[in-house]
């Protein structure tokens, strides 16, 4: 029964959601299910938060290597929760009751702590792409040579400096941007993207059907 009931729920929910998509008067069912899912997610956050406190608390208690960072994590988590939920939501001395309004402490944390941290992490990608390219982009075979040359052309000639150098060498009217847009982006790239998207969609349909019909059960755990 432990596995039969979840499989039955999956089947009924899946079939209902498929039918409601095609039958307009039943569309409200999909929206209701989406609302239920959000409610379940909210409860699941409680479990996730408990896990966070448990894992980090244990490291602090055991003085595991780097335990100070676990304190930083828990303090940041609690402070953000306090600012957003207690401080600004109840509206103690801050404009408005929406935590995200301009002028609230929560908004200040978002603009001056979260924004720079997020942008910094994203900027790591620039450095990592350089090291990954240095290591991986080697012309070892015909395919890797093609990959390398395409990457080279797009990287060099999609930036203003590359276009400027191209026009210094080539006659007027020989636009490299047009070549890249039409043949590389519009041709090879489009074809490759469409192929991956179409085959992924077919795989997606297959897995979805298997899950709805109970053929695929590994995501539930057990055999």
């Amino acid at each position: 029964m432990k596995r039969q009931i979840p499989l039955l729920i999956t089947f009924l929910s899946g079939i209902t959601l498929v039918i409601q998509y095609y039958v307009l008067p039943l569309n409200w069912i999909g929206k209701t299910f989406a609302g239920w899912f959000q409610a379940i997610t909210a409860f699941a956050y409680v479990l996730a938060a408990i896990s966070l406190f448990a894992v980090n608390g244990k490291k602090i208690r055991d003085r595991a290597p780097g335990w100070l960072y676990n304190i930083v994590l828990l303090v940041s988590l609690t402070a953000t929760l306090y600012m957003g939920l207690i401080c600004d939501f109840i509206g103690l001395g801050y404009p408005g009751y929406q935590p995200i309004d301009e002028g609230t402490a929560f908004d200040w944390m978002f603009q001056y702590i979260y924004n720079p941290l997020s942008a910094t992490m994203f900027s790591l990608t620039a450095f990592f792409i350089a090291s990954a390219s240095f290591r991986a982009f080697k012309a070892r075979s015909i395919e890797s040579t093609l990959l390398l040359s395409t990457a080279f052309i797009v990287m060099i000639f999609r930036v203003p400096l590359g276009e400027y150098l191209w026009l210094k060498v080539m006659p007027d009217g020989w636009s490299i941007s047009w070549f890249i847009d039409t043949f590389i982006m519009g041709g090879f790239n489009n074809a490759g993207q469409r192929a991956i998207q179409i085959s992924s969609a077919i795989g997606l349909i297959s897995v979805s059907l298997k899950i709805i019909l109970g053929v695929e059960r590994s995501y539930l755990g057990g055999e």
């Binding site: 240095f134 982009f137 080697k138 060099i156 930036v159 400096l161 590359g162």
Partner: peptide
């Protein structure tokens, strides 16, 4: 971005 792209391209050429 232009200079960064050229730098990465240069690193790729060097690596090859």
């Amino acid at each position: 971005q232009s200079i960064a792209h050229f730098t990465i391209a240069g690193l790729i050429i060097l690596s090859n």
